[in-house]
Write a protein that binds this DNA or RNA. Structure first.
Lengths: 339, 339
DNA sequence: TAAATTTGGGGTAACGATAACCCAAACAAA
DNA sequence: TTTGTTTGGGTTATCGTTACCCCAAATTTA
């Protein structure tokens, strides 16, 4: 109502309501005894003035801000976006706001961002695949605020972690293709340096090698992008003997693979079956709907939130590792081989 | 090094360095005169202890947190993800961190979130399409922290805004299709209630009506999802006389449309041309690459950041409205009509 | 030599909210 | 009437940082 630059404080509310600051604070936080009449006057004053608590002050005093931070490499990748969404949902359920901060895979930024958040802006932190070195993680372990690592496969740490399995999920996908009669199964890898991508590739190699079906020539480098999948698949499709199925290290990669197959005039799954990984929302919306391996991001987010809450409650969480199995979701992009 | 629960403060650093808190503060902020020797001792102590400034305290004192907040309906939508990415990039360039908060299109949440952020956690706010009512926006206008509205088309406000045009962009797309000889042009709308979707539809109607080509039967309801586009397109493809082109209100919708066309055994663009809207990253990565209307999100983010910086510098920004033209990007999904 | 300036650094208070404690008044019990 | 208890609410101190002001020593200037 007055100056645009006049932040409204407890004192303003107290003055208008004719009580002390403490009474206002107690009213808003439901601590202490307040008579009904006073409570109403206070609430009216709060509403009239449009007062909102200053989280910085509350945090400084030792209280909570009600904000959790999430540090994530990027948002444009559907998988990360989905992880962020799940975490925000869970946080919201638990009465927290989730602020998502991207690092653009830049270690310095990652570190700076986390430092800022820990510096009183957030009550806790969800850190997705930090590339951080050991010293950095050590410094995180010392932090006052609870921290949970998500999908971390790097250096050892005592910080609690939540992970999704990649190895067994990939294995299930390959076994599915084998059971459909496929023998020449191509693979488009994920980005170099991704530990999850490495796990998926390892699984592919081991399962096929065990069957005597491993052909290194059927492995092509992707990068988790659609274009990467497209180009890798195009190479596979120029082989003298075509693969009858292609396993892509991510759903987005699989979309590129499907594009390439269709571009070549072939059909999915009639000519070539395709399996993805992640089960991003789009996977079930494309045509043919994508057979893929689902990372249980919702369950992971739930577990991560629980760890945060446990830490708030001073339960011991150090060295906790919760790993979720991934699950094969069979849709329309895979089919028994044509005889 | 010591207790895990011992946040390190200026006082700790000061003690180790053998100086006062103020000297440490001055050193870190480059204010005041500090001798070279003292500076080095302080910096060493900071590094040894792993000190990070407590942003809450700094904010309370009247300083900046270095964090900007962005409030956005959701993250899973590629368009919003792209807007968030652009904003984060720009913020980063200007030395800020950007925390992204989703509202899940829930007005209460939106309001609560913004309140929290304004309460000392963020120095400024980028608010994307708030569904807020007038009273709420009024309360935002009173805020101490700078706020910029992005793509807001709702109730009037004095808050500075950055927008992307939808009307002219859609017009350019339709004119493009007309110039290619298309006369039966289908339209798949966006979500009900989206002001941008409404603009695009209005443009479609007006341009085609002006040519005497408007056929309400060629308009189908979408919802900005791929499935929505798929189903709407399937309806269009069952018309006795097929459209030769389909304009989708978003790229994601267009992907669904393309799926439906291919599913029907038809080809894009040979049988039916498709145009999207937004130019999300995937648009250029699919095959055929999507002809679409680009929203200049990077430029918008840049303008929004500039407004925030201007507000910091006490320049007047009230009632500023910056509108960016959208731009037709012609790729492979459109083609002259077959004769 | 005395006065003025610079250099380097510290003391104090304040930002806004709240936990812990305290204090009146009103009422009940003995 | 006296003591004890509840009710309703205020006082004080504190979180970590920094703006403002002050002070002592060193150096320069008159």
């Amino acid at each position: 109502m007055l100056m645009p630059n006049s932040p409204i404080t407890l004192a303003d509310v107290a003055r208008l309501a004719g009580v002390s600051k403490i009474t206002v604070s107690k009213t808003l936080n439901n601590t202490g005894r307040i008579s009904e009449g006073t409570r109403e006057r206070v609430l009216k004053a709060v509403s009239d003035l449009g007062y909102v608590v200053n989280s910085a002050a509350r945090s400084l005093r030792g209280g909570k801000t009600g904000v959790l931070g999430m540090v994530i490499p990027e948002l444009v990748s559907p998988y990360f976006a989905e992880v962020a969404r799940a975490a925000a949902d869970e946080a919201s359920q638990c009465g927290f706001d989730l602020g998502v901060f991207t690092t653009s895979r830049d270690v310095t930024k990652e570190r700076a961002r986390i430092g800022t958040l820990l510096g009183g802006l957030a009550d806790g932190l969800l850190v997705v695949v930090p590339s951080g070195n050991e010293k950095f993680l050590l410094s995180l372990e010392r932090s006052r605020a609870p921290i949970v690592l998500i999908n971390h496969f790097g250096v050892q740490t005592h910080l609690p972690m939540v992970r999704a399995d990649s190895y067994l999920g990939a294995k299930a996908a390959i076994l599915h293709l084998l059971s459909l009669g496929h023998r020449r199964i191509g693979f488009v890898t994920g980005a170099v340096g991704s530990s999850q991508a490495a796990e998926r590739l390892r699984s592919y190699r081991e399962v096929l090698a065990a069957q005597g079906l491993l052909d290194e020539n059927l492995i092509r480098q992707g990068n988790f992008t659609q274009r990467g999948g497209f180009e890798a698949a195009r190479e596979l499709l120029e082989l003298p003997e075509l693969p009858t199925a292609i396993f892509a290290a991510s759903d987005v990669t699989a979309f590129g693979v499907i594009d390439a197959i269709k571009d070549k005039g072939l059909r999915v799954p009639d000519d070539i079956s395709v399996v993805g990984f992640d089960d991003i929302p789009a996977a079930s919306q494309v045509h043919p709907a994508l057979t893929t391996v689902r990372h249980p991001v919702q369950a992971m987010a739930q577990a991560a939130m629980q760890l945060i809450l446990d830490a708030f409650a001073d339960k011991p969480v150090r060295d906790t590792l919760i790993e979720f199995p991934s699950e094969l979701v069979i849709r329309e992009s895979t089919k028994a081989i044509n005889l």
